[in-house]
Simulated scan of single mutants.
Amino acid sequence: MKTSMLSMFSLSLFLLLSLPSPSLSTRCNPNDRKVLLQIKQSLKNPTLLAAWKPNSDCCDWKEVICDPSTNRITTLQFTSANISGQFPPAVGYLPYLEVIIIRSLSNLTGYLPLTLTKLSHLRFISNTKTNIFGPVPSFLSQLKNLTYINLSENQLTGSIPPSLAKLTKLTVIHLDRNKLTGKIPN
């Protein structure tokens, strides 16, 4: 009888250990993972994002940082990579995003998308040395938590929107080396 119980216990333990363990992939918020995969697809699946796979923990993916207490994406960073396409509007659907850093992506084009206005937690946006174009978006003034804006070395045109003066927390703004015209607002 003891041998039978020991065999049953061993079999149960083996089966328990054979089951897929709840991996860290449960940390990643499913909505954030879905948005990140949309971003990857819109950027034409660059090599830099090869590790971004649907069944892996997006909190461990390169180029993103999750808040350890909420496991929501708070930082998105693409630098010096072979990424091409339009600035992904899906970025605006990462509701806890606080920091966006995009640098030295000469094949990144398009306008800054209006969906960025959904990012109520956004404090820091740096999009430099890309080929985004169009005016400096006046909608940035809706992002009341912004403390830092760097849109230098792009193809931005037109004047600086006076509405940016509404950003009371803003301490740094870089718009140099674009094709801007007009007066600098007070």
Rank of each mutant, 00 (worst) to 15 (best):
117 T>R: 09
33 R>C: 02
18 S>G: 09
169 K>T: 11
79 T>W: 14
79 T>N: 15
14 F>T: 13
72 R>G: 07
1 M>C: 11
89 P>H: 07
126 S>Y: 04
54 P>K: 15
156 L>Q: 10
120 S>T: 12
46 P>L: 00
14 F>P: 07
8 M>H: 12
140 L>A: 00
99 V>K: 08
118 K>L: 13
80 S>Q: 15
95 P>I: 12
185 P>L: 06
164 L>R: 00
122 L>G: 02
100 I>N: 02
2 K>W: 07
118 K>Q: 13
60 D>Q: 14
168 T>L: 12
23 S>I: 09
173 I>A: 14
14 F>V: 10
157 T>D: 08
172 V>F: 09
69 S>R: 15
174 H>V: 11
73 I>T: 14
180 L>H: 04
173 I>C: 10
52 W>Y: 06
149 I>C: 01
157 T>H: 13
115 T>S: 14
149 I>K: 02
110 G>L: 12
21 S>T: 15
50 A>W: 09
183 K>E: 08
52 W>K: 04
6 L>G: 00
10 S>P: 04
125 I>C: 11
6 L>V: 00
143 L>D: 02
171 T>I: 09
29 N>G: 10
76 L>P: 04
51 A>P: 07
22 P>H: 12
10 S>Y: 05
107 N>I: 03
163 S>K: 05
120 S>V: 14
93 Y>G: 04
20 P>E: 10
130 T>Y: 05
94 L>N: 02
7 S>T: 04
104 S>F: 13
183 K>S: 07
16 L>C: 09
